[in-house]
Design a protein around this nucleic acid. Sequence first.
DNA 1: TCTTGACCCTGTAATGACTACAGGGTGGAT
DNA 2: ATCCACCCTGTAGTCATTACAGGGTCAAGA
Lengths: 140, 140
Amino acid sequence: MMRTYTIGELGRLTETKVETVRYYERVGLLPHPPRSSGNYRVYDDAHLGRLGFIRRARELGFSLDQVRELLDLAGQTTRSCEEVDEIVQAHVTDIERRIHDLQTLRQELTQLLAQCQHGKVAECRIIGALQPYADRPMAG
Amino acid sequence: MMRTYTIGELGRLTETKVETVRYYERVGLLPHPPRSSGNYRVYDDAHLGRLGFIRRARELGFSLDQVRELLDLAGQTTRSCEEVDEIVQAHVTDIERRIHDLQTLRQELTQLLAQCQHGKVAECRIIGALQPYADRPMAG
DNA sequence: TCTTGACCCTGTAATGACTACAGGGTGGAT
DNA sequence: ATCCACCCTGTAGTCATTACAGGGTCAAGA
């Protein structure tokens, strides 16, 4: 009494475009499902679970390679979850670095905006700040 | 008495890979420079200035399309710098959204890490939290 | 003069993670 | 019979580079 799903149903259930489901299959994240007589892909609950896992991990910002590792580890149920922890920890560190970079960027841009006197481009401090060789002409 | 540069010199001065300089030319961000007798690209200070502008704007996170707009506006010196302001402001808003998204993500992941009991994968809360259909089997 | 070696040239393909067709077949309802 | 929504494969596009492969150029040293 196993429920089956077409690729469209699977997509709706996991908020994944049909093309993306096929893409995951192509790159080996989803197993090749059996086919119907009309050559349609036939999915079951195991596929639904696996695709759900992938999408949730992607939402959390993991790369497909990281997702691959996590899926692999998730299958080895008796193993210590140390490596899972490491992957997540590394990802948090990466996210923190990106937050920091973006904050630096925002500050630079905000300072540029504060300097703008809303005059003509010729005197614009923003444009000026973008020109590291302001004494030279600029090609166009 | 105009200084000229080879593509390699230009790259060193602006911390740009040679391939990237050629790429900017291909997509129309840099004008086609004149060529030497041996078919080498010959750049001058105007090119240096323009490439510097591009690289600085890229460092500040502007897309190449935004850089194109900024370069275009920078050339229209008598125009009001309102549009420059708008582009930068839109970019700041975008960056703020990204910072916010990343902060949300970091919090979710930090919570996952806090729940990890460092046991076996079978009981791992992290893996569990990634499985939206935890009652179902998972294909592999 | 010859030969290194560093540089330059073009053109094409790869990266990540999809997305968007084109051109066709299937399935169920009317 | 016909319609439409859905499915199929295969290929190419996105963004901003980067990485070759397979050649040509140029200045210096032996």
